[in-house]
C-alpha cells in the first residue's frame, strides 16, 4: 500500500529552487533506492518527506493525510529518519541511544516500559550490536556506529524508514549486511527508502529505483530499467559499463562523457 505520496513537490531554499514538481510514492513492503548525482536534491526530498522542510508548492501525504495536518506524535511513531552521518552529541551508552527511538511511544512523564526495553533489545540484536550495548557511542568505529543508528531507527518500529546514505563509508561486508537488513525490513512489510550511491548494490537489493536529477525525478522504475546508459550518462556525465549477473545489473563507471 502507499504510505507516503509526494506529488508535484517544489521546494526552494530562499530563492534557490532545490526541487521542482517532483512526484514519487513510497510503498510498504518495498525497498526504494534514491539515486542520482550529488546535489540533485535526494536529501532534500527525504527531509521534506519527514516533514522537516516546508514545501513551496505541491503536497506530501502520509497515509492519505497531508503531512502538515498529521499529528506530530502520530507521524513520529510511524516514520523513522536516519540522517547521513548521524551524530550523537553526548557520549550516551548504545542502549540509551537506541532507547531514544521509543520516545514517541510514551508520554513525557513516563520512563521506558518493559515493552520498550524488549523492543530495544530486539533492535540491538537485529543490528548485531548487542555486545556493544553498554559502550559509550563515541568509542565505536564508524561501522558500529552506523549500525547503532540503524538500531535506533528500528526501535521506533516505524512503518516507513527513510535512510540517507546508510551504507556510505562502510566496508563491503557491512554494506552487504546493511543492505540485507533493509531488504529483510522491507520483506517484513516496512516501507524502506534509502539514498544510495553504489548503483550495483542498489540494483541488487532494491525493488525500485528513483533517479533524481536536476531537481526532479527523471526515472522511477525497477532497477534494470533505470540503470541504463541512456539515463545514467545524462545524469552523472559518466559512461558506465553495465553487465548483468543473473539478470541483475552490475554497474561500473568507465569514463567521463564527452563534453564533460
Amino acid at each position: 500500500m502507499t504510505l507516503l505520496e509526494v506529488s508535484g513537490l517544489s521546494l526552494n531554499f530562499g530563492t534557490v529552487p532545490i526541487l521542482t514538481n517532483t512526484s514519487v510514492d513510497f510503498h510498504s513492503g518495498e525497498l526504494l533506492g534514491l539515486i542520482g548525482p550529488n546535489g540533485a536534491g535526494k536529501t532534500t526530498l527525504l527531509r521534506a518527506a519527514c516533514g522537516l522542510l516546508r514545501a513551496t508548492s505541491g503536497s506530501i501525504r502520509f497515509l492519505g493525510k497531508k503531512l502538515q495536518e498529521t499529528d506530530r506524535k502520530e507521524l513520529a511513531r510511524n516514520l523513522a529518519y536516519l540522517p547521513q552521518n548521524g551524530q550523537a552529541h553526548w557520549s550516551l551508552s548504545v542502549a540509551d541511544l537506541v532507547l531514544l527511538g521509543r520516545l514517541p511511544h510514551r508520554p513525557f512523564w513516563k520512563g521506558p516500559s518493559a515493552e520498550d526495553r524488549r523492543i530495544v533489545s530486539d533492535a540491538l540484536r537485529a543490528c548485531d550490536v548487542v555486545h556493544l550495548a553498554k559502550r559509550p557511542i563515541d568509542m565505536l568505529s564508524g561501522g558500529e556506529r552506523s549500525r547503532v543508528m540503524l538500531a535506533r531507527s528500528l526501535a521506533v518500529e516505524p512503518r516507513l524508514l527513510l535512510a540517507d546514505e546508510p551504507v556510505t563509508g562502510l566496508d563491503p561486508l557491512h554494506q552487504l549486511e546493511a543492505m540485507e537488513k533493509f531488504r529483510s525490513l522491507a520483506d517484513s512489510g516496512i516501507g524502506v527508502v534509502i539514498v544510495i550511491h553504489d548503483l550495483s548494490l542498489a540494483a541488487r537489493y532494491c525493488d525500485r529505483l528513483a533517479l533524481v536529477h536536476d531537481r526532479r525525478i527523471v526515472a522511477d522504475n525497477e532497477p534494470a530499467r533505470v540503470l541504463c546508459n541512456e539515463y545514467l550518462n545524462a545524469c552523472f556525465g559518466v559512461r558506465f559499463k553495465i553487465e548483468f549477473d543473473h539478470g541483475i545489473p552490475v554497474v561500473l563507471p568507465l569514463e567521463k562523457c564527452a563534453g564533460n
Binding site: L52, R72, G86, A88, L103, P104, R152
Partner: peptide, 23 residues
C-alpha cells in the same frame, strides 16, 4: 524540568529530534 526528553532527543541532532516528534 519537562524539557528532559526533548533534550535527550536533541542528542541526535535537530532533524532526528523533530522526526521523534519533538516540537
Amino acid at each position: 524540568s519537562v524539557l528532559g526528553r526533548s533534550l535527550d532527543a536533541l542528542t541526535l541532532g535537530e532533524d532526528t529530534a523533530r522526526t521523534l516528534g519533538i516540537d
